[in-house]
């Protein structure tokens, strides 16, 4: 969609036109779903958060002043909703299976990801590793998890992530570094095996 066309649609959507807002939704729903999935790690939660993101955006359309792009604004809403969701579910999750427990129950992990490219010899190990990596990302403190997901999984630059998160590029850089250190620590036994292969 051209920026000029998007601006016109935003103006109409600000007046409460649902059909116009749905055109904007169709433009961004897959990206928002991907983002919320990367942040929550669960397809159903991601679908709910995607819907809630667009509902909140519709309610707040009158407040949208175009200082950030519509895309960045939607991302911010989705991230805020996801962070709240993560904090809430983190409190409820205490006691659930940790990465260490996955290591003990190898082969039992249920995966929702697309695997490919690995040779048959190491595909099994890779599948386990990715499941454990996802679990380890899920267990990161929310701020680190979101920053890591934006930079590594969403492939945003530090600058873009800083814009979406409303923080400095240095903060993004530091959080990603800390997240990587935490992941390495959590996945040490897998990494040793991988490095030996």
């Amino acid at each position: 969609m051209r920026p000029e066309e998007e601006r016109q649609l935003i103006e109409l959507a600000r007046l409460g036109d649902v059909e116009v807002f749905m055109r904007l939704t169709r433009e961004y729903e897959h990206q928002i779903f991907q983002l919320t999935f990367h942040l929550t790690g669960n397809r159903e939660d991601a679908a709910d958060l995607t819907q809630e993101t667009f509902l909140q955006a519709f309610r707040a359309m009158k407040k949208f002043r175009g200082e950030a792009s519509f895309h960045t604004w939607l991302y911010r809403i989705a991230i805020n909703l996801s962070l709240n969701f993560l904090k809430k579910s983190r409190r409820e999750k205490n006691g659930q299976e940790s990465v260490e427990e996955i290591e003990e129950n190898r082969g039992g992990a249920q995966l929702e990801y697309n695997f490919s490219q690995d040779s048959p010899e190491d595909s099994s190990l890779s599948a386990e590793f990715v499941a454990s990596l996802k679990k380890a990302i899920d267990e990161l403190p929310p701020a680190y998890r979101v920053t890591f997901s934006l930079v590594v999984l969403e492939e945003m630059s530090h600058k873009e992530a800083a814009g979406v998160l409303g923080c400095s590029e240095k903060t993004v850089s530091w959080r990603v570094h800390e997240a990587r250190k935490m992941l390495k620590k959590k996945l040490q036994s897998f990494l040793t095996l991988k490095q030996e292969v």
Binding site: A47, Y113, N114, S126, I137, R180, K184, K194, Q195
Partner: peptide
């Protein structure tokens, strides 16, 4: 450390896209 982080990065890309 670099080698470990390269593995994490490579495997993280495999999480990749998911869609309905």
């Amino acid at each position: 450390y670099l080698e470990a982080q390269e593995i994490i990065q490579r495997e993280a890309f495999k999480i990749g896209e998911i869609d309905y």
